[in-house]
């Protein structure tokens, strides 16, 4: 599968988190994700963005979405204050992300934090008797 990356960049302000949420919903809905998975992704991206905002020092927060063979890789990232991981693995936030995504990682690189979320799409054979749609 092609791995073109779609990026949405918004000001690092709480009011723009909803847009990231909508963006990932729209993206995932066009891939083979179920309604519940789409909802999971929206919630996960919101949670990731909210956590980044708490530590953000820059002006922007970015959402990168790339299709992979098995699903969707999402990277939510921003410049942050400090070098500590933005999400502690003992936190409630971590539990939420773990429940919503199939894999979660937090990367810290030169005061730039990236929360990586992986979500598997529905396997081909599990698709219902749906035609090309439309």
């Amino acid at each position: 599968m092609a791995t073109e990356t779609v990026t949405v960049r918004v000001p690092a302000k709480a009011g723009h988190v909803a847009l990231l949420r909508t963006a990932v919903g729209g993206y995932a809905a066009r891939d083979r994700f179920t309604l519940e998975q789409v909802d999971d992704l929206r919630m996960a991206v919101e949670e990731a963005a909210v956590q980044l905002l708490r530590h953000a020092r820059g002006e922007r927060i970015e959402l990168d979405m790339s299709g992979t063979d098995s699903g969707l890789e999402i990277r939510v990232h921003a410049d942050v204050v400090g070098e500590e991981p933005v999400i502690d693995q003992t936190s409630f936030s971590w539990s939420i992300l773990r429940a919503l995504a199939d894999d979660v990682q937090v990367e810290m690189r030169q005061r730039h934090a990236t929360i990586v979320l992986l979500k598997h799409r529905l396997p081909e054979q599990d698709e219902g008797a749906d035609g090309a749609g439309g």
Binding site: G25, G26, A29, F33, T34, L35, L122, G128, D130
Partner: peptide
């Protein structure tokens, strides 16, 4: 119930006779 899993957005759109866009909009 029918599928035994959560439906895909296109499946919902088809069953409802509306576009995927409208489904997303309504869900939001």
């Amino acid at each position: 119930q029918e599928l035994g899993r959560s439906p895909l957005i296109p499946e919902i759109a088809k069953a409802a006779g509306v576009s995927e866009e409208e489904v997303l909009e309504a869900l939001e």
